[in-house]
Amino acid sequence: MHTTDDWITTPLTRDLLRGALDVERTERGLLPHRLPARARAQNNDGQLAMAESQPSGVRLALRTRATVLELDTLPTKRVYVGVPPRPDGVYDLLVDGRPAGRGTVVGGNTLTIDMTTGAAAVEPGEVGTLRFADLPGGTKDIEIWLPHNETTELVALRTDAPVEPAPDPGRRVWLHHGSSISHGSDAASPTTTWPALAASLGGVELINLGLGGSALLDPFTARAMRDTPADLISVKIGINVVNADVMRLRAFGPAVHGFLDTVREGHPTAPLLVVSPLLCPVQEDTPGPLAPDFSGLAEGRLRFVATGDPAERASGKLTLNVIRDELSRIVSERAADHENLYYLDGRELYGQADAADLPLPDDIHPDAATHRLIGERFAKLAFADRGAFGD
């Protein structure tokens, strides 16, 4: 039985974190960010601000002999008006690379969002505690993966033995950018989002810039990727551009070129993989914008519907099929200049046959089983000997 006198409190600092591009000192502690301060200053969208502060792929990486660990955090829980409550965010514990526990933190702030009006309000809450006990003895490397879908301020770390940053594993770094599916929407936990699963299978270190609702070819995101050290890079482009109905075909092609050009400024020779959208039946041939369908809320179901007119494709409105054709063309043309550039049709990760067996529960986002399928397929395709990321 440990008393308070047994505890060692370790200051929470950036060198204990992996997967974050920036950290912010708050009144309570340390807030990881997945976009740097310069990018955040140029953003004017609340959805992106929320998404980048949710630490998908961010983890504490420690070396210690401790057998008991407590982490105080201040989570921000999301509540959508009229929608069934979301479960608490999940923390995954790895010991020497193997799953060793899972937990949640109750309490925290509450962010209430009304999807019909866009209004949002925050109610302050209290710090909670995550505890892992009965850890194996001896020196070991511990990772605590923070909830992929819950903004998390780190407040205090207590252990029964000293802690130091885990050493650099010396693995290749994979930098990935994408939409809410890459962010991990509806995955079971932070280590079971499809990028986290693919990274584990590929033996690489993940930096996940999957930003829910916000893969919109923003120049500041491209600059963040340009300035982030990485060995392998992928960008999954398309679904959010259609969902948000932010541009027409005339603007889309040059925007893709500009995004890739900016990334290439910092990574002139690294393998760069462009991934087109997964199958999403509601938007294959119907333009956006996307809107929530509240008709099933009485049964606890929220779905989404595309509200555009398929006839508008003739005037340049984008659909997923239009985007796939354009991305394939762009990559083919750029690759002819001997650029280390590759294209992956997202339907190889989740396609028509999969939709019959594993339909998207809300018509947009994959469930936990589908995240596993996508992660395994991506690893097989990208990290294979002849894949874009093959050794």
Rank of each mutant, 00 (worst) to 15 (best):
A356G: 08
M1I: 11
L197I: 15
A270P: 00
V163K: 05
R158T: 07
T13D: 09
T110V: 14
E143C: 05
S328Q: 15
L130E: 04
Q352M: 07
P87S: 10
T192K: 10
T76Y: 01
I239A: 12
N44P: 00
W7A: 14
V155W: 08
D285M: 07
A161D: 11
T129W: 08
F389G: 04
D88F: 13
F259W: 07
H267Q: 05
D218T: 04
A368H: 02
A222I: 06
D218Q: 08
R171N: 07
R28Q: 11
E339G: 03
D160Y: 10
D309P: 06
A196L: 04
D141L: 14
E376D: 02
L35M: 09
D45R: 13
D309M: 03
I330C: 12
A100K: 07
D186F: 11
A384S: 15
G210D: 03
L69M: 15
S214R: 06
L373K: 10
S189T: 13
G125S: 07
L35S: 01
V235A: 15
D309G: 09
V204M: 00
V241E: 12
V68W: 14
L62R: 11
F389T: 01
L381N: 02
P292H: 04
P55W: 10
V256H: 08
L157G: 05
N243K: 03
G178Y: 09
C280F: 04
D325F: 01
N208S: 05
P169R: 09
T152A: 04
G212E: 02
V68E: 14
